[in-house]
Computed example of a mutant assay.
Amino acid sequence: MFSLENPVTPVAPARDELVPSRYALKVGDIDVLVVSDGVLPLPTQMLGHNVPQSERAPWFEQMYLPQDAFDWALNVMVVRSGDRAILIDAGLGMDPDLQLPRAGQLIRRLGASGIDLAEITDVVITHMHMDHIGGLLVDGVKAQLRPDLQIHIAAAEVAFWKSPDFTRTNMPPGFPDALRATATHFWAEYSSYVRTFEDEHEVAPGVVVRRTGGHTPGHSVVRLASGGQALTFAGDAVFAVGFDQPNWHNGFEHDPDASARVRIALLQALAGTGELLVATHLPFPSVGRVSVEGDAFRWVPVFWDF
C-alpha cells in the first residue's frame, strides 16, 4: 500500500518544474493526496457564457486575470481508506490534436509521488469528460492496473455518453468531438471494470460517492468523512467564479440551470458545516472552505501545512 508520508522509489521531477504538484493531508484516518494534472488554457467566456463580456470583465479585472484566456487547474485526488487505495478522477491524458502540452501530467506525477498504479484498488470517475478519464487511456497505463480494479461511475453518466447531448454547452471548436471520442474509447477499454451506482455508493470506509447531476446527468461528488472531519471533492460542480457568481453558466455544463442549482446547494451545505472542499478546476491544491458573504459565497483557502 502506498504511503503519503514516505514515497518509495520516487521519480525525479523535471528540471523545469519549479512549482509544487502534490499536497498531502489527512481527513481523520483517511490519507489524501491532491495531485495536479497540469493546467488547461481556455477562453474566459467559458466561465460565464450567459452574461455579456461587459459583466464578466470586472470580475477578471478584480482577480488580476487576463480578459481573453487563462489557465484552468486540473486536480485529481488519491485516497487511502482501510485497505483501499482510490484514485478520484484520472486527468486529461495526452490528446495531441488539442495541443494542450501543460496538461496530462498525472501518471508521471503519481510516479514521482511513489504511487504504483498496481496499488490502486478503485477509481471513482466524477463524470466522463476527457479531463477526468483521459489519464487511463495513456499508452501503457492499462497494463499496469490490477485485473480486479473497480471503476465507479453513476449509471446515469454511462447512459448519457451512449448518445450525448451538447445543445446547451458552449465549448471551443473541437471539444465536443474530442469528448465523444474519448468517452467512446474509455468505454471500449474499461467497460468490464465499471461498477455503476444509482444515487450513492460507499467505495471504502468513509468514502462515499454521490450523484448530483447538473454538469452532466451523472456528475458526482465524493465525500470523505472520518474522525469528525470531512472533505468533499466536488469535481466540476464548482469553478473559481462560482463563489462570486454561482449563476454564471460554464461552457462545459450540459444542463446549466441544473448546474447552478447543484452548485448553490453544495456551497450552502459546505458553508454550513465548515467542511473542506477540493474541486477539479480551483487553483492547486484547491483545499479550502466556503463562507457566505451577502448574496454570494467566498472561498477560503487553507493555510498550507508543511
Results as ranks from 00 to 15, higher is better:
residue 155 A to W: 10
residue 76 V to L: 11
residue 206 G to W: 05
residue 145 L to E: 06
residue 26 K to A: 13
residue 58 P to R: 15
residue 111 G to S: 14
residue 205 P to N: 11
residue 59 W to I: 08
residue 269 A to K: 06
residue 229 Q to R: 09
residue 268 Q to E: 04
residue 198 E to L: 09
residue 262 V to M: 01
residue 110 L to N: 04
residue 268 Q to R: 11
residue 112 A to Y: 06
residue 42 L to A: 09
residue 89 D to W: 12
residue 107 I to D: 01
residue 283 P to M: 12
residue 243 F to C: 08
residue 293 E to Y: 03
residue 203 V to P: 04
residue 238 V to A: 04
residue 66 P to F: 05
residue 143 A to P: 02
residue 200 E to R: 13
residue 88 I to F: 15
residue 235 G to K: 00
residue 238 V to N: 03
residue 4 L to F: 12
residue 209 V to W: 08
residue 245 Q to W: 06
residue 38 G to R: 02
residue 3 S to P: 14
residue 19 V to I: 08
residue 186 F to V: 07
residue 271 A to P: 02
residue 121 T to W: 10
residue 115 I to C: 06
residue 255 D to Y: 03
residue 52 P to E: 12
residue 111 G to D: 10
residue 275 E to M: 03
residue 287 V to L: 02
residue 299 W to Y: 07
residue 21 S to F: 09
residue 173 P to N: 06
residue 208 V to G: 09
residue 270 L to S: 08
residue 49 H to F: 15
residue 274 G to M: 06
residue 276 L to I: 11
residue 296 A to M: 04
residue 216 T to Q: 14
residue 59 W to D: 08
residue 111 G to H: 09
residue 169 T to I: 00
residue 227 G to W: 05
residue 240 A to C: 15
residue 37 D to M: 02
residue 83 D to Y: 13
residue 71 D to H: 13
residue 55 E to M: 12
residue 222 V to S: 07
residue 251 G to H: 05
residue 242 G to A: 11
residue 173 P to C: 05
residue 251 G to W: 01
residue 2 F to W: 08
residue 36 S to N: 07
residue 101 P to A: 07
residue 36 S to V: 02
residue 220 S to I: 09
residue 140 G to K: 03
residue 267 L to H: 01
residue 223 R to E: 11
residue 118 A to N: 10
residue 238 V to W: 00
residue 39 V to I: 05
residue 94 M to K: 14
residue 144 Q to L: 10
residue 248 W to F: 07
residue 279 A to M: 01
residue 130 M to S: 04
residue 135 G to F: 00
residue 121 T to D: 07
residue 11 V to L: 10
residue 225 A to F: 13
residue 58 P to W: 10
residue 225 A to H: 03
residue 255 D to T: 05
residue 181 A to P: 07
residue 297 F to W: 00
residue 216 T to C: 14
residue 29 D to G: 13
residue 284 F to M: 13
residue 100 L to A: 00
residue 14 A to T: 08
residue 122 D to Y: 08
residue 297 F to E: 03
residue 32 V to A: 07
residue 101 P to H: 06
residue 267 L to D: 03
residue 101 P to Y: 01
residue 288 G to D: 02
residue 110 L to D: 12
residue 270 L to C: 07
residue 132 H to S: 01
residue 7 P to L: 05
residue 20 P to W: 10
residue 81 S to L: 15
residue 208 V to T: 10
residue 174 G to K: 01
residue 156 A to G: 12
residue 253 E to K: 03
residue 117 L to D: 12
residue 178 A to T: 05
